[in-house]
């Protein structure tokens, strides 16, 4: 069974020409999938459709085999969590603690259990020292980690990251990326869907889906897709640094085993 499944989904804002037309998409359960696409390829729309913030005009969306409709919206939302792009606009509480509690309050968690849960999940994203800090005194990366902790505390089956790192500086990006890597290792039963145009995130994906103009162009493994220069160029994507480096090495006739791990490559050289 797929964690998220789109069947012939069509969507357009205000009856304009559809952004997404007859889209078929399958996100495998328990995997770390990266949805790649340049700006305006309909990536974020897919995220909003999957969590029921937007309603598709045609087709069906299934979450864990349940068809998404108005009646089971609450059920779906308890399964799917999402971290959005802008760190400021998803910080609801007046302190880190309150923001993390917000989701728990909505899930009707017993307030006496909340403190322990907040501590636990704040530790996971390394924010446990900032529990009583106000959002103004946090960096973008820190706020985004709080957002991540907030949705993780709700214990979702599916985690969607909608350009969660695109507004962050390199350090903030790395912090978030490290947390996601760790999640991937520790909680293998959770499906993670990362929607991004930041190709480096795709290096360690279990599966990559390349999207262009609201259509799935190609589905495959990082090893197959990321070396395909033509495919990336056609979809306005740039190969990750390590692959660009390997191309240069090839041209310079330096022998090496192709790898996606930077450390591994450094060791070889």
């Amino acid at each position: 069974m797929d964690a998220i499944k789109f069947e012939n989904v069509t969507f357009g804002y205000h009856n304009q020409t559809p952004i997404i037309e007859n889209l078929n998409l399958e996100i495998k359960k328990g995997k770390y999938t990266v949805l790649l696409g340049h700006n305006g390829s309909g990536k974020s729309t897919i995220a909003k459709l999957a969590i029921g913030l937007l309603e598709c005009q045609d087709g069906n969306i299934f979450i864990d085999g349940i068809e998404l409709n108005e009646k089971n919206l609450n059920q779906i939302r308890s399964k799917v969590a999402i971290v959005f792009q802008n760190p400021d606009n998803q910080f609801i509480g007046s302190t880190v603690r309150d923001d993390m509690a917000f989701g728990l309050e909505n899930k009707c968690v017993d307030p006496n259990l909340m403190d322990a849960m907040i501590e636990e999940y704040a530790k996971k994203v390394n924010m446990h020292e900032f529990l009583d800090t106000e959002p103004t005194n946090l960096s973008g990366g820190q706020k985004q980690r709080v957002a991540l902790a907030g949705v993780l505390a709700m214990q979702p089956d599916i985690l969607i990251l909608d350009e969660a790192t695109s507004m962050l500086d390199p350090i903030g990006k790395k912090e978030i990326f490290d947390v996601i890597q760790e999640l991937k290792v520790k909680r293998s039963e959770m499906t993670i869907l990362s929607i991004t145009h930041h190709i480096e995130e795709a290096l360690f994906a279990d599966e990559i889906i390349i999207l262009n103009n609201g259509k799935v162009v190609k589905v495959g493994l990082p090893n197959d897709l990321l070396y395909d220069q033509n495919l990336l160029n056609q979809n306005a994507l740039e190969a990750p640094f390590i692959i660009q480096l390997e191309e240069k090495l090839k041209q310079a006739n330096i022998p090496f085993e192709p790898t996606l791990d930077v450390k591994e490559l450094v060791k070889q050289l």
Binding site: F102, E105, C108
Partner: peptide, 15 residues
């Protein structure tokens, strides 16, 4: 807020 299943009319607890 909505994505975090907020519904002002629904039952919720308070931290």
């Amino acid at each position: 807020m909505e994505a975090r299943s907020y519904n002002p009319y629904a039952q919720r607890t308070r931290y």
